[in-house]
Every structure is written in structure tokens, then in C-alpha cells.
Amino acid sequence: MSFINYMAREINCKIVYYGPGLCGKTTNLQYIYERTNPEAKGKMISLATETERTLFFDFLPLSLGEIRGFKTRFHLYTVPGQVFYDASRKLILKGVDGVVFVADSQIGRIEANIESLENLRTNLAEQGYALDKLPYVVQYNKRDLPEIASVEELRQLLNPTQVPDFEGVARTGIGVFDTLKAVAKLVLTELKRGG
């Protein structure tokens, strides 16, 4: 849940990047970190294994500017994508305000995407959330690779409710900020509605 601090005149929101292992969640955050002005970002923290696989989470605090005198701050988190880290994924979803599902466009990863999306729904439900009621966007990542599924096919499988979706190449930054902006907008719109 967002945190409204009248004293500091700040609003803090939590966005979680979800998706199967090696889909590019951490890469999204790294690109955002590299391309954001120093005054608008905090330190990026990655709790990763020696082989740079996310072990617990990545964390990046961002300031987006002011709305009506309130500073808007977003805390971006990634979950560990590997299947056996499910207990950690559940913890990171606590208090979430918006979700980005990063899908791996490669044909060989279609099953992994579907499984991860199912896992997201289940884990959110355990925390008392419904994915369809949360600010939620989808990114089809790795569009630069060969052997990828068409966007239409991915959309049909992973985005039947037609939330905002974006093609991405997180490594070079394509679609990264479009995705972030879209989910941040949805989160703020939800706040406006008193969510």
C-alpha cells in the first residue's frame, strides 16, 4: 500500500517487476538506474548470488517529481524469477501498489511465462490482492532475439485482459521507460480514486 506522509509531503509507492527467470527484470531496473539523474534516484541494491542471479530482490528508489506539492517517490523491486524462490517472491509482493510483468518473448520460454503469470496471480491472492484490480502492465522483452513469438501470440496468452503492454529490449532500453511510466500513471490514477 502506498504511504502518504503529510509531514514530509511525500507519497511513496511500491512497484514490483515480476516474471520468469532470466526474463530481464533486473536489466530493466539497471537501465532505469543508469539513465536517471543522480538527484532523482537512490542507490540500487541487488541481493544476488555469485552468478548474478537475483537471490531475494533488487531495489531502486526513484523520485518522479511533485504533484500538488507532494513529492512522488516510487520504490521499484524485482522478485527472484527462479521457480524455487517462491517463498521470497511472496514476501516481496507485500504492500505492492503496481505490478510489471516482464515476459520473455523467446518461443522456448512461453511455458515459463505462463507458469510465472499463474504464480503471480496465486501469490497475490494469498496476500489478499487480485491482479485484475491492481495497476498492472506487461512488457514483452527480448524483441531483438531470433526465435521469438509474435506480439499477438504473447498478448493472447499473457494479456487476455488487455492491460497496457509494451515491446521491450531491456538491454538497450527499448520500452523500459514506457513500461515504467505506464505503471506509475496507473498507480497515481488509482490513488486519485482513493485506492
Binding site: M1, Y6, A8, K94, Q127, A130
Partner: peptide, 8 residues
């Protein structure tokens, strides 16, 4: 849904 809103 989830925890109540945190306000300070």
C-alpha cells in the same frame, strides 16, 4: 485489499 493505507 491487503494492509490498510499508511498515512502519517
Amino acid at each position: 485489499m491487503g494492509d490498510p493505507q499508511m498515512v502519517m
